[in-house]
Write a protein that binds this DNA or RNA. Sequence first.
DNA 1: ACTATTTTTTAGGTGAACCTAAATTTATAT
DNA 2: ATATAAATTTAGGTTCACCTAAAAAATAGT
Lengths: 220, 220
Amino acid sequence: MLSLVEENYLKAIYHLSDAGKSAVTTNALADNMNNRAASVTDMIKRLSTKGVISYEKYRGVNISEKGRRAALKVIRKHRLWETFLVEKLNFNWDEVHEVAEQLEHIDSPLLIEKLDSFLGHPKVDPHGHPIPDKHGRIHEVKQVQLSEAKVGTQGVLHSVNDGSPKFLQYLSKIGIRIGARIEIVEIMEFDGSMEIIIDDEERVFISRQASENLLIREAT
Amino acid sequence: MLSLVEENYLKAIYHLSDAGKSAVTTNALADNMNNRAASVTDMIKRLSTKGVISYEKYRGVNISEKGRRAALKVIRKHRLWETFLVEKLNFNWDEVHEVAEQLEHIDSPLLIEKLDSFLGHPKVDPHGHPIPDKHGRIHEVKQVQLSEAKVGTQGVLHSVNDGSPKFLQYLSKIGIRIGARIEIVEIMEFDGSMEIIIDDEERVFISRQASENLLIREAT
DNA sequence: ACTATTTTTTAGGTGAACCTAAATTTATAT
DNA sequence: ATATAAATTTAGGTTCACCTAAAAAATAGT
């Protein structure tokens, strides 16, 4: 059994390791969790004892299969709750993260199964992120950072990397939503900003930073 | 700001004091929280420092106005979540308590307001208990323990005192639900058990212990 | 009224999850 | 290659929420 704090660390490790593909350093974790490195070392040892990560001193941590499953359970709950908040309670997509951070730790398999059916077994959350099924399976969709695409690329906004209220409010303001059609008109050499057309209507300029956080599925 | 554990103590104090009407002893609290008396003394001191209870050594604790408001907020959340679980997620009324014990600590006023409207501003939870409004006001309904009524009494089951799964499953089994009409046919002198008619149909015998936990609104 | 019993508190200890300061290991730069 | 810098760990300390054992106060019984 993992504590609430342990679950949060594990989730951070999962995300920082890009779903287990790479190792995570102590400092990266400390940064992400807003804790000191020494505290992270403490926790790492505990998580290692519990078998959810593997750890070699000074070498960073890797999530184990057991840890991956635990992390995906929390992520499944987080994303289902976010969907509930937006679809049923009419939250805006920029208001859900903090609340879902709390709800994701509620421990009741029955609740999650019932919530899942209540929502109609959604595949993605309001930010376009896939919701793992009860066995921890995710159907990843091939998507590209807008910043990596070239002029002329057309696609559909599939998800956002940055879920912060500030970013999401900015997107709403300029008319970008999940599912919107996006076409790259021009890319500015000097700062990487780009001009795009949204839904064949609006032309807007977005910064390089913004385009890095927009993931599109390219039209073929 | 109260911790999760502090909220649980405060809620227990509220209930054990009959909504603040009487003092609560250390042992009663220890019993209720499944902790040792020494631990309770610790916590009592902390709650007293925070101003949510008043405490005189060896004299038990009394909830303060500030404490009462805090307790009612938790109770409001608990009962709204129970209603959600039963009305929207199709939980049985005997399955909701444990989950609601977790959900009641989620801290988001916006969430609770939205949940309240989603549910249509319910006045009572699935066990017939009144849901405090956002200002902590409760509309108590005049109700009597079935065990205190006399032969011939007719009324409607309004709420249950004991919310344990075992009791609720028993009630379901013999056909008793909130809102059912109940008429007392006979009371056995020797053990206080009684024969009742449910919804003018079923005749059943229930123990004194059961009748003490059934609260009816008498028909006038 | 005084002793025995019960209730409550105090004293001191534990693990979880943090901290700072110091020591150690690894990485970087010339 | 070695000195310096950066990253990480160790050592020791804190608060919260529990514990046991012992002491103190309140209550009950004769």
